[in-house]
Write a protein that binds this DNA or RNA. Structure first.
Lengths: 351, 351
DNA sequence: AGGTACTGTGGGAGCGCTCCCACTGATGAT
DNA sequence: ATCATCAGTGGGAGCGCTCCCACAGTACCT
């Protein structure tokens, strides 16, 4: 049983009206001060602020949300099971970036997992209730229905990565093309002659762009691209092993491998060791993600670093913009809504 | 074709009033149906439910929160920097338990970090605004001001662990006494003669209880407790190393060590290896927490497991109770508000 | 002098819901 | 027959805020 008004005994929280009375001004004026409107004289502002301090006034968020039709909250939606969230540094870096950018605002961040079907239904319900002003969507797969649901509900959203070159939603991506290119150029600089590539899943746009970078780096160096040197893995260690084995069978003389993820590089490294090829002397190796694995491999793995934390920060900024000038999405140009941040090579001993 | 949610391009969401009109009933009746009140006839209920479905009605949470003076949200407060949150499996297990219990309810969970002073101030502000109906407080230190702030604001709260034997707040703890006891009994069963204990920080109540368990297990087995065999570490690896070194100096003949955490056990193991003592043949070792470290040590570490996930679930249940019968806290007995869950020994090869 | 443009301010009119009281008509007790 | 009782219902009165219109006052033009 909920006892309505049981708050009678202890100090009831002061309302706007009471602050107004105390400061000898109108309700509207107090509201203006609270919300930082410039249209208030300094004297009045000071009086109101004094009253707020004396009464210990704290705005009632529910009332504000109802009247202003906003919630001052955004959601970070992780369409993965919690396990992956804790396992991969990607998410904690992202969260740190978003959190940092958020601390300058009054916004509240909600973390929502939507790994299972059940959780996804709950999320849909949640979004339909418009309980957040905007959504940050990380780790979206090409065929995820979530982005469409969001545009249908007209909820501002920003995604990390792009689903394709024609991404319609505001997004923040890292320069996968440039990253792939840098990795290969580095290997060529080191004097490698035959550079193979273990690519990630092709339904991930970033993986495709890394392949493009690989191809162009070779071409621009005057090499021909040997398609047999490109094998698709699936971002797993086992996939990396399989790919490496196959590569060695196809081109035994290869002397460098650029893997589309550190985890796949780790798999490849195992196979190389097993067949007695040294790293980097016989086969140089470069990974992608600059994850903890890279630092702990033997030898430490050269890898391409994405500025995840900066990406998180950028995503939040984009989202806040999006929320601020909320208007028919079609009326806006796409120019500044797609951000691409640079990826950088971190050189270690594997190359 | 059923148009789910007949709201057009306008995007306006249907209100209670509109549902009432559609169903040909009053506002109050719809509210009763939505909130599952039993005082509605079956026929009326069906009519309302049909109208809700046709219009795609979703309650406006802000309006509800304002009128009912509740938020339907609770916070999981982590008084630690985010880094620790991601590093320690404790938190992810806890989160999983809470999340599981939560999915049966309409409640929303907020994850709040309060590691830095700045974040703590923000949190205080947040709590003062009563933006949550209750708080789950994990990893509280003995001198943390947060619990007091919560009772002052009359916000229902449950903490994990207890600050002392006289804990006043509702809490869920694991049986640290029993866990410590089980560890030592196990070592004695294995035939160990001289069992040492590396204790955790003494301002953590659970660490004290583990010492009590250690003492009683020895006494009950007819052994005398040698106080020189108890050394306080600080839950860190370095602390474990220091403690082990000191123990070997004091009692070179010891043949078993019960460490108050896996991390300290890892430190102890390093020292033992360095001085050429084998595990478990020369010195048997038991840790606490059953963390990932335990499984990955060489040899795998016997450790005491706390049912963290269950504890999370229990904490949520307690909190929901607390919120439900919100009334002067003094009027309630403490009987069922302090829960202690069993800890179990997981035997591996280190003992 | 009148006109125009601002700045600063007060307060009415909601936002969409829950709570609660008043009311109806049926049922049972006397 | 009369009076309680009670399940079922409708709708008024807010909850505490924001939005916006109205308006006083001041300043600066003609």
């Amino acid at each position: 049983m909920v006892v309505h008004g049981a708050r009678g005994r202890s100090g009831r929280r002061p309302t706007l009206e009471e602050v107004a009375a105390r400061a000898g001004v109108g309700r509207g004026t107090v509201s203006r001060v609270i919300n930082g409107s410039p249209r208030v004289s300094d004297a009045t502002r000071a009086a109101v602020e004094a009253a707020v301090a004396e009464l210990g006034y704290v705005p009632n968020t529910a009332a504000r949300a109802l009247a202003a039709n906003r919630t001052d909250a955004i959601a970070l939606v992780v369409p993965e099971p919690e396990t992956r969230f804790f396992a991969e540094p990607y998410f904690s870096d992202m969260l740190r970036g978003v959190g940092a950018a958020l601390s300058d605002t009054e916004m509240q961040l909600l973390l929502i997992f939507a790994g299972s079907d059940r959780e996804r239904r709950r999320l849909a319900q949640y979004l339909a209730a418009h309980r957040v002003d905007g959504v940050l969507l990380v780790s979206v797969h090409a065929d995820d229905p979530l982005p469409d649901l969001l545009s249908q509900l007209e909820i501002p959203a920003v995604i990390s990565g792009r689903r394709s070159a024609e991404e319609t939603l505001p997004s923040v991506d890292s320069d996968n093309y440039g990253g792939g290119r840098a990795a290969v150029e580095h290997l060529l600089d080191r004097g490698c002659r035959t550079v193979a590539h273990i690519a990630g899943r092709l339904d991930v746009f970033g993986a495709q762009r890394r392949i493009d970078g690989y191809r162009d780096a070779l071409r621009d160096a005057g090499r021909e691209v040997d398609e047999d040197l490109i094998i698709t893995g699936d971002f797993t260690e086992a996939g990396g092993r399989r790919a490496m084995t196959e590569l060695l069978a196809r081109r035994p003389a290869l002397d460098a491998v650029f893997a589309g993820s550190d985890v796949m590089a780790a798999g490849a490294r195992q196979v190389l060791r097993e067949v007695g090829r040294r790293t980097p002397d016989d086969v140089a190796l470069v990974g992608y993600d600059d994850s903890a694995i890279a630092r702990h491999m033997d030898p430490p793995l050269t890898s391409v670093r994405q500025p995840i934390e900066d990406m998180g920060r950028a995503m939040l900024d984009l989202l806040l913009d999006e929320i601020a000038d909320r208007r028919p999405a079609v009326s806006r140009g796409l120019d500044k809504r797609q951000l691409v941040l640079p990826a950088t090579l971190v050189e270690r001993d594997s190359s």
